[in-house]
Simulated assay, not measured.
Amino acid sequence: MRINFDFTDLEAFLAVLETGSFHLASAHLGLSQSSVTRRIRKLEVALDTPLFNRTTRDVRPTLAAKRLKVRAEHILGETRETARALRDESSAYAHQLSQSLTIATVPTVIAGLLAPALKCLQQEFPSARYRVLDIGANEVAEAVAEGEADIGICPVPAFEPTTTFEFIFDDPLVIALLPEHRLASRPNVSWADVSEENLILPRRGTGNRMLIDDALARTGVPLVWTIEVGRTTTALDCVCAGLGIAPLPKSAIIAQERAPFLVKPVAAPAIARPIGLLKRKGYRDGVLSRRFSEAIRASAAPDFALDADA
């Protein structure tokens, strides 16, 4: 059976039933009397039965109208409740979206930079949610440029016309080695010193490896790797196993206070990668993303200076 009436027809019907007048019903609904009359007529045609007996003096409901009253009230009541629930859910979802942040970041800064910043924000925004994409520097830039991430934390990327980079700190490369290593007693080491050791280097194509290769190509210091790895955590595991020494970003090991290895500054030349916040041009910071940026700056300030006591 096809239904040829709608909710507005039922509203008109109930208004006439309650007021006992087409004129009063039209005033109640803010419609013309002829519009109310058309809606009642449409309902009567659809149900194939008269709903009101009309005289010049009054309007009386038929038996069909009395039977329809309960059903019409139920239908409209359910419809209003459904609409209200959907609006509430939509508002709640919109609020959730405003209180969520997708962060693309290179893994090396998570422990020392990202985690402390998020810990601070959890106190201020206890219901906020954070989606963390721990990916390579190039992927961070792509995620931000394509809108997959709201904000990125990475070394300065290749020029991308749709993003902006805010410098936060210089992240120096340091040498991780065991306490019993022959270089452990030195306050710092040079690249010439480490070139004769079993080296655990980042694999070719990674940002850290390119940073090392570019800097040393200008000095003529040759580096021959013994082990080549893709992740900093793998390099640290190899160092702890006594397989060699590893040049790593300071940010990657600053949170490893109880680790069984030592960290030595490396010079001649000193190498550092600029770390910053990456955003899309035109991106409008919400309260959460603005406070996140402030927390990242605060986390970086005391710990990531390029100094001789690293």
Score class of each variant (00 low, 15 high):
I40Q: 02
V229A: 12
A27V: 01
A158V: 10
L201S: 01
A143Y: 08
T234H: 04
R258G: 08
I103V: 06
E142C: 10
A184C: 03
R60G: 04
V59T: 00
A111E: 03
A12D: 02
R218H: 05
R67W: 11
L68N: 02
R131K: 15
T19F: 10
Q123T: 14
A241M: 02
T8G: 03
G30P: 01
K69G: 02
V263S: 01
P260C: 07
D48V: 15
F125H: 12
G77S: 09
G205E: 02
E160V: 06
G276Y: 00
D309L: 14
V132D: 08
L10M: 03
L113P: 04
V266H: 02
R284E: 11
L101Q: 08
L43E: 08
T49H: 09
T108A: 12
E81G: 10
R2I: 11
K69Q: 14
R41K: 13
G20T: 05
P161F: 07
F7H: 09
T49W: 04
F7T: 10
A104Y: 00
E18V: 08
I168F: 09
L97M: 05
T206L: 06
A85R: 14
R218P: 01
I245A: 06
L211A: 10
L248V: 14
C240E: 14
Q33L: 05
I75W: 08
R71A: 12
R273H: 00
N53R: 15
I168L: 07
A128H: 00
R71C: 03
C154F: 07
L173M: 13
L24R: 12
A295G: 02
A143D: 08
G20N: 06
T234S: 05
H95I: 13
L183H: 02
R60Y: 06
D88G: 06
A104F: 05
N53Y: 15
A192H: 13
F52V: 06
E142P: 11
I135N: 12
E73N: 07
E18G: 02
E148Y: 11
R57V: 09
R131C: 13
N53T: 15
V194H: 00
R38W: 00
E146C: 14
A272C: 09
T55C: 12
L97W: 08
D150A: 06
P249D: 01
F125G: 11
F292N: 03
G244V: 00
G147F: 04
P187N: 09
T102G: 01
A272P: 07
V174N: 11
E146F: 14
S98H: 02
R131L: 14
G276I: 01
V239P: 02
P155R: 01
G242S: 00
V106A: 11
A241Y: 06
R2E: 11
V263T: 05
E44V: 00
R87V: 07
M1W: 08
V59P: 07
T19I: 08
A301R: 14
T37V: 05
V239L: 04
R129G: 13
E197G: 05
G286C: 03
W225H: 14
D58I: 14
A267M: 03
A235W: 00
T102P: 00
R38L: 13
H181A: 01
R209H: 15
F261K: 06
S26N: 04
A176I: 06
